[in-house]
Design a binder for these strands. Structure first.
Lengths: 225, 225
DNA sequence: GTCATCATGTAAGCCGTTACATGATTGC
DNA sequence: GCAATCATGTAACGGCTTACATGATGAC
């Protein structure tokens, strides 16, 4: 899980440990927060495995909106020089390596064991192509639909029935509603992804696909752009 | 987390390990499933601590609806004798002790570290009185409301903005919706609990309170309101 | 007599945590 | 100078998992 989070974050831009922790909480919600005690050893491990490498010290702060395929380190360094002349020797800035990118793709495709991992996979699924994303979403959907609780009113007598008090019933009903909400969220994602696949004939360059993905946004609740 | 689950389950009725695992998955959803590798050592630990004790072997299956204050072990043994003459020597049936009940109450009142624990606390909160339940629900509500994500449309520029792609936006929006859903679920629970407190003047016997809690049930059909 | 299920346990290991230790930079 | 924050790390430990080992019971 940590590897996925770290590699995913670093595939956006090079970062140092402290900043990684902050951005992780931001991207994946406070529930995915990790402690330094696991973060730094993990970075060391990833570096030893050749999946990330330390680059020149670069304060990241508010980065440039990432204009395109421009080498991320270069951009970051440039931003630094422009912003302040200070050097911060104590920071170790990590960047993802090609091997790391490869590993990231593996981690994104690998069936998620838990909710948090799936969450992270979605957060970084921009690195996949539409077909792979569809697989990701649909696998999750199948998983959810499988061990779905029976609906609130149904068949109280079946299944041993540990639901003999109001609180367990409330819990059970809420669980059911939450699952349904996630299912329809997934259905939306899947439907949109299918549209992308239809609009972009196979073989089209990923640059075009990426641009398209940015443009095609659902008008929902103020998420206009 | 395991202790809470085990003590909670055993406070309903005596059970052996294998059965505990099954019922745990049932009550708390498949996400709370534990493996034998942690279950049995945990039971051993609880026994050594005097929070549970082994009782005579009792096949539990469909237990009697737990008529009241009747000693649970006695009931279970009686059920056994009536159902079949077989003895299953290999099972170790555990029952909760008074010390265990006390510990259970502690665990139910202790601020939940994670979602799963809160889930379990609700599942077993029948053992608390209304005031304590209210505290439980309201603490959770405060927690949720605190690090609540900003609403979907709001203030894109703030907060460093790691939300530059549609998938992260979708994730973020869903998170927001899920939090709101849980908040209103909690509000319902809290409102109902307040009604109970109002209906039952302080000082009333807990037996009456329990009967009342059983009787005042929302007409299902979901969390309408 | 053999297979599936029920039933209990141990050992090794993974993945994360908290607590501790250290030091640089910035603002007052 | 002093405190708050930034920044990196280590050590000990906790809780849960998988894999392994064992054996009883019941169905066919």
């Amino acid at each position: 899980m940590l590897d996925l989070a770290l590699l995913g974050l670093l595939s956006d831009q090079p970062l140092h440990g402290y900043e990684l922790k902050k951005q992780l909480a931001e991207v994946a919600g406070s529930r995915a927060a990790v402690s330094f005690g696991s973060l730094y050893p993990a970075l060391g491990r990833l570096e030893k495995a050749g999946l990330v490498s330390t680059v020149a010290d670069t304060p990241v702060g508010r980065s440039i909106p990432m204009t395109g395929s421009l080498g991320a380190e270069v951009a970051a360094v440039r931003a630094h020089r422009a912003t302040s002349g200070r050097t911060r020797r104590t920071r170790k800035v990590y960047a993802i390596t090609p091997a790391g990118e490869h590993r990231l793709t593996e981690l994104l495709l690998q069936p998620a064991t838990d909710e948090r991992t799936f969450h992270l996979q979605v957060a970084f699924c921009q690195h996949l192509d539409s077909a792979q994303r569809l697989e990701l979403f649909e696998r999750r959907r199948a998983e959810l639909a499988m061990h779905r609780h029976p609906s609130p009113g149904a068949d109280r007598s079946a299944a041993g029935d540990r639901l003999f008090d109001r609180y367990r019933r409330a819990l059970h009903d809420r669980e059911h509603a939450a699952t349904n909400a996630e299912l329809s969220w997934l259905d939306d994602l899947i439907a949109e992804e299918r549209n992308l696949v239809d609009e972009i004939p196979p073989g089209t360059s990923s640059a075009f696909a990426a641009a398209n993905a940015q443009a095609t946004i659902t008008p929902s609740g103020g998420t206009s752009q």
